[in-house]
Amino acid sequence: MIEFRGVSKRFGEKVVLDGLSLVVPEGQTTVLMGYSGTGKSVCLKHVVGLLEPDAGQVLVDDEVVNELDYEALMQLRGRIGYVFQFAALFDSLTVGENLALGLRRRGLDPGAVTARVTESLDLVELPGTESRYPAELSGGMRKRVGIARAIALKPRYILYDEPTTGLDPVTTAAINDLMIRARRELGVTSLVVTHDVRSAFAVADRIAFLHEGRIRRAGTTAEIRATDDPLLREFIEGALTGEAV
C-alpha cells in the first residue's frame, strides 16, 4: 500500500502540494488525474524518495519513505518500477542495456537478463529493438521502452507517469491492456498519472483528482463517472468530447 499523509511541497514560493492525502490500495490500479502543472509528477517522485515532502509523510508498506536510511531506501526502490513522463532513457546505452542495467543490479544472471529483456520488449510491442539507441527511436517508442524498463523488473509497485500520452490509439490500447494484465496476473499495485480520461476509465479501480495541491475527489471508477463536482465533470467531459484538457 502507498499512502500520502498530508504531504506538502513547495518550490521556492510556489506551493505545489498542500496537505495532500491519498491511499493507493494493495493490488489495485489507482489513477491520478489533474490539470497540467498541478503536481502529479511531483507526487510520484515522493513515492520513491526523489523528492522529500516539506511536511507530511509518504508511506510505502507502512515505512515512511523520507525517514528511511540509505540501505532501506534502496530496498524500497527495488520494489518499485517507475515510468518517467519523458521516458528518461539512458541515451548512451542501447535499448537492451537500458533494460539490463536494473536487472543486473538485482543480481540476475546474464542468461536471465537477456530473456527478461526480450520478454519485456515483446510486451510493449517493440521486439528486436535491443541494439538500437534511444536517439534513433520515435517519442512513442521511447515511452514504451521506458515502460519496458520498469516492468522488466517485475516490481510489486509500478508508478506510471502518463504512459499513454502521445501514443497512437492502437498502442494506447496495448499499453492499457498491459497495465490491466499486470494487475490481474501479477497483482501489481499501480499508481497511474494520466490526462487520458478514456485510458483512466479503462485501467482504474480508483480515480483521484488532484486540484490545488490536494485530492479534490477520489473514488471508484463508477463514483467518479457519476460525480456531480462541476470541475471534475468539466475535466472528464471536456476530454471525452475531445476538447482541450
Binding site: K45, V48, G49, M74, F84, A88, F90, G102, R105, L153
Partner: peptide, 15 residues
C-alpha cells in the same frame, strides 16, 4: 542526464 531525468531514473533503479 540530470535535466532529462536520467539521473532520477538511475536512482529509481536503486543505482
Amino acid at each position: 542526464m540530470r535535466v532529462t531525468e536520467q539521473v532520477d531514473a538511475l536512482e529509481t533503479l536503486a543505482i
